[in-house]
Design a protein around this nucleic acid. Sequence first.
RNA 1: GGAGAGGUGGCAGAGCGGUUUAAUGCGCCGGUCUUGAAAACCGGAGAGCCGCAAGGUUCCGGGGGUUCGAAUCCCUCCCUCUCCGCCA
Length: 423
Amino acid sequence: MLDIKFIRENPDAVAKALANRKTAADLSGLLGLDAARRTAITEAEELKGERNAASKKIGGLMKDGKKAEAEEAKERVRQIGDRITALDEQVRELDEKILQMLLFIPNLPLAGVPVGKDETDNVVVRTWGEKKTFDFKIKPHWDITEALKLVDFERGTKIAGSGFPVYTGQGARLQRALIQYMLDLHTVEHGYTEVEPPFVCNADAMTGTGQLPKFAEDMYHIGFDGLYPVPTAEVPVTNLYADEIIEEKLPLKLTAYTPCFRREAGAAGRDTRGLLRLHQFDKVEMVNFVKPEDSEKQHEILVREAEKVLQKLGLHYRVIELCTADIGFSAAKCYDIELWAPGVEKWLEVSSVSNFWDYQARRARIRCRDEQGKVQFVHTLNGSGVALPRLVIALIENNQNADGTVTIPEALRPYMGGLAKLG
RNA sequence: GGAGAGGUGGCAGAGCGGUUUAAUGCGCCGGUCUUGAAAACCGGAGAGCCGCAAGGUUCCGGGGGUUCGAAUCCCUCCCUCUCCGCCA
């Protein structure tokens, strides 16, 4: 959420930043409500001051036995009280309206984020590795998973629906191995603390990180209990510190494996084949809570930590900086990491590494102290480290052999019981 | 799920209608003393909002109510603990 004070003092800059995002917002309407709110608060607080003083006097009169005088004063204060009740109600309504508007306004892109009209204006920052050449006819991953019985799509559809694959045999083992490999990498080499959060969250948590209220349709919802299966570990892990002043040393780096549930509303019919786009998938996520002055530096470190996962597996990837029109709702700056998948001949997004600045911290009220002990909002960052299905796609398409087997990268073999090949 | 008890500042724990601007202890920060430290003593110290500031105002699990005035009384929801039941 944006700071209403910042909007009040920089309306033009905010309008321009939102325009770069291709987002419209009624800023003047918002500021009108803000002005009305402050007027009402000022009057209400003045009256409360009067009432507090008068009530104290009444207490004194009662004690002295001056009953008549006390009754007279009570009547006067009652009237003040009525006015206060009305003003408080007015403030409450204005607060709610202002909050509802703020919750729907996205974060502002950082200065330096390329201004663009859509995803075609994203910028390739760097590329690692190169496209592998094959001396045989390669297969797309769905043929490989079928031949090696790694994934059973049909039975997943039967028990849950399309987009809910069943991993079987070595395919299931591979999922488990990748999760463990990534968690070990982040905890041992990158200094993360592993957490295993709940796989469902309440509406408050969903609002804190920005999924609600705007993206309700993208999520599953257990209406009976008011819970949402998590669309990403970002939600439970970031909200761990909601409503807190973090006293631990920053940066605080947490990593978590969770399954992720997404309705993919609006994406029906796209990438329906294989593992490209799913309603449920596994992901290891990294979340950082950092001091405001460190967030840009820490963001760069975070992308490198995600890249490390791919480098150790020897996979060709590129890092993209998203332009103003393409960064996510809550993000101020975002890098995507894309793996090359030769079978489907596509760059596949396996990681999104975002700097949320103080946007989520303000929504979730996550704070820290500066050197003077003054309370301020932390900056939150997160990055996939990484998402499994597309990693699996790239892994098996890149490492497939002429005989139909798939070579397992060295880094992964300890997690596969020493196995060198699938199939 | 049933019965009971309880939710107060970082923690412990008073207060149960009007000098509570939330006692007291521990912990924390600063100071005195000390070669240094400890102890002792003195002082400080929560969060939000409005305000240029002075200052004001709100917050005792959440919400609502009674009252001139609520941490304190009433209603309701949530959570925790104990016992019972069920159960991986």
